[in-house]
Amino acid sequence: MMDDRLTRTLEDARAGSPDALDLLFRQAAGRLLALIRLRMGPRLRDRLESRDILQSTLLKAFDRFDQLRGGDSQALMGWLVRIAENEIRDQAEFHGRRCRDAAKEAGLDENAAAGLAAQLRSQVSRLILDEDALRLEQAMEAIDPHYREIILLRKFEELDFETIGARLEKSPDACRMLLARALAALTVKLKELS
């Protein structure tokens, strides 16, 4: 079962509660934006606006809320990441050919959509990547792709080591050790950047 607090937050946010939206942002949006930026990579970031992707990801999440399976923040992040990844792929493929109206596509009630989209835009525009986050992003992009991947899977998508192990075809212990090495490498890179 879904964690009550999260369920309520998401539902309230969907209904347009500013507090709930704020809470949701505090819980997930920052990391989701960082993940979107990392998944996009520097080249795609030049062409697309990562905040747009975050916004349409959240709108889609509100729309498909009933598709969410699982009961904790781990499941929620995993689900949001899937939507974000699809969104990045879609936008990368159709960029320049289609002008997307995220609110319309989300298929919500028009008024509600307009209100929600406006609130989201306001929230997203306030979402800034501070110096720490930007340095982290630089460091993440500078480390070995295998290291980057496991940090994304564990720290951003919050997958457990068994799931990561199944995905990477490694034992959970090996994944834990790989993550330790990845985080150490990330720290080394951060030290160099600072």
Partner: peptide, 9 residues
């Protein structure tokens, strides 16, 4: 860095 990575999680 870990706090930044885990913020909100």
């Amino acid at each position: 860095a870990d706090r930044t990575l885990s913020a909100g999680g």
